[in-house]
Structure formats: structure tokens, C-alpha cells
């Protein structure tokens, strides 16, 4: 596959690909302010795959929406390749948890993947190539002409992933993308994410509430506290670059890391 390298044409610099600095988000409700995120700082180098995990209600989705530019942080900033972002950036794509609601049911799979490329001003030949390659990458070449609702949940999420990678983002954000698919599909999709990451070298932020999933997927795991959210710890995952559902999960080191993060999250819950 000859997907454009997201790094092509970018001046190499020392800046991390994605930097979140002292991000804070306060919701102003009717007479009641809720501090969802207190202070979150972390960064990703180009080509890193980092998982963000935290107890339920840890403001993970709020954090991801701030990074994606869908929500404006109260203070702090998000930098993409050294530049602060204001609003959704052409350098980012998001895969949402609700696959059934993020694809356009009135469009065929092909059209769903192609739509953002039109907005990006790609030529028809370029669009066709990107659509074909990205559907190939997620194993859905034969489903091009189907409607999303004719596909299973796992396949729908594959379409959403294909749409995101066809967009050729610098950073791919994934918000608990596999939280509502069955366990077997989930394992397949996890391996798909690893495969795409290896193949395309794209920088990935993967938000999840599942500790096992975060350890299995990530090169690093950022552990969040309960709300108001701060970063509890940034845990490097030294499990090697080739992961397999059978062997990696049976690795004693996997168990250790899993236990370490589990303990952190348990602490996080008790601090509230």
C-alpha cells in the first residue's frame, strides 16, 4: 500500500506531534460549575500509539473532544505538530464509540469514506485510490457498495476506521471505539489497529476504559485520575512491537503492567 506518509512534506522539528499542556475544562451549568478536567499534560511523538485509560467518569471523552477541537478548553492548549489548534484540524481524524451513529445511513460505504476527502479538495482519482486502499486495509473491499446498516457492528466500525485513515491524518483519535462490540470482534479490531499503526506509522491516541485493552495496544498508557481529572502516571509498555492476542496476553510482563495500572485506577477511585 502506498498511502501518503503523513510526515511527508512536514518540516522535521523537535516539537512533539501532539502536545496537551495544562488542559483544564470547566463546565458552566445553571448556577453550578463542574470542573471536569483539572490539569492534563502529556505529549506524543510522531508515530507513537498511546492509550488513555481512567476510571469511569474520568472525563476521558471530554478530554478527547478537547483534543479533537470539538470542545474549547477553559485553559491550556493543544498543539498539533507545534501549532496550537482552534477547532477541528485537517490533521486529525476521530473514530467514535457509537459506530452506528457516526456513519451516514443514506450513503454507501464508499461514499461515507469518500465524503471527507471531497471536503479536503482531493481529485476524483486520488479519492478513488484512497477509498480503495483504506477499505482494503480494514478488509472491507467487497463491502464498498453496501449501506452501513447492512453490515455488522464490527464491520461498521471498520468503515469508520477506513474513513479516518483515508483522511490521512497526522493524529488518529479513537474514543472507546470497541466498547460496544462483542469480545471476539473486539480482539480482531484491536489487532487491526495495531496492524494499521505498523503499516502507516500514524500517531494514535486510543481512549479506553478497558485496562487489558490499553496494555495490549499501547506503547505507553496514560492513566487518568477520577474527575476533576489529572494525569496519575504515564506508564511505558515494554511488550515489544509485535503483539498477539494469545502470546502477549499470556506474557507475565503483561500481567504485571495490567496489575500496576489496575492498582493506580483503584487508587484513583478511592481518592474521590
Amino acid at each position: 500500500m502506498t498511502m501518503n506518509d503523513p510526515r511527508a512534506g512536514e518540516a522535521r522539528s523537535r516539537d512533539p506531534m501532539l502536545a496537551i499542556r495544562q488542559l483544564r475544562k470547566v463546565y458552566d451549568g445553571s448556577g453550578r460549575t463542574v470542573e471536569a478536567i483539572r490539569d492534563v499534560t502529556f505529549s506524543l511523538d510522531e508515530g507513537e500509539l498511546v492509550c488513555i485509560v481512567g476510571p469511569s467518569g474520568a472525563g476521558k471523552t471530554t478530554l478527547l473532544r478537547c483534543i479533537a477541537g470539538l470542545l474549547e478548553p477553559t485553559s491550556g492548549e493543544v498543539m498539533l505538530a507545534g501549532k496550537p489548534i482552534a477547532g477541528p484540524s485537517p490533521g486529525m481524524a476521530v473514530v467514535f464509540q457509537e459506530y452506528g451513529r457516526s456513519l451516514f445511513p443514506w450513503m454507501r460505504v464508499r461514499q461515507n469514506v469518500e465524503l471527507p476527502l471531497k471536503e479536503k479538495g482531493k481529485s476524483p482519482e486520488e479519492r478513488r485510490r484512497l477509498v480503495d486502499e483504506s477499505l482494503e486495509a480494514v478488509g472491507l473491499r467487497d463491502a464498498r457498495e453496501a449501506y452501513p446498516w447492512q453490515l455488522s457492528g464490527g464491520m461498521q466500525q471498520r468503515v469508520a476506521i477506513a474513513r479516518a485513515i483515508a483522511y490521512e491524518p497526522k493524529v488518529l483519535l479513537m474514543d472507546e471505539p470497541f466498547a460496544s462490540v462483542d469480545a471476539q470482534t473486539r480482539a480482531e479490531l484491536e489487532d487491526l489497529v495495531r496492524a494499521i499503526w505498523v503499516r502507516l506509522g500514524v500517531t494514535i491516541v486510543f481512549v479506553t476504559h478497558d485496562i487489558d485493552e490499553s496494555v495490549y495496544l499501547g506503547e505507553r498508557v496514560v492513566v487518568l485520575s477520577a474527575s476533576p481529572t489529572t494525569v496519575m502516571q504515564d506508564v511505558p509498555i515494554d511488550l515489544g512491537s509485535v503483539r498477539s492476542q494469545l502470546e502477549t496476553r499470556a506474557d507475565p510482563r503483561f500481567g504485571q503492567l495490567r496489575g500496576q495500572i489496575y492498582a493506580l485506577i483503584k487508587d484513583a477511585k478511592h481518592q474521590v
Partner: peptide, 16 residues
């Protein structure tokens, strides 16, 4: 709302 977010993420605005 998820479809709206999807459009926002991919910067689809206005007439389109």
C-alpha cells in the same frame, strides 16, 4: 449529535 460531531471533525460546513 454523533453525526454532527463527525461532520465537524471532517470540517464539513455550510452548504455541503
Amino acid at each position: 449529535s454523533v453525526l454532527k460531531d463527525t461532520c465537524s471533525v471532517y470540517r464539513i460546513h455550510g452548504l455541503r
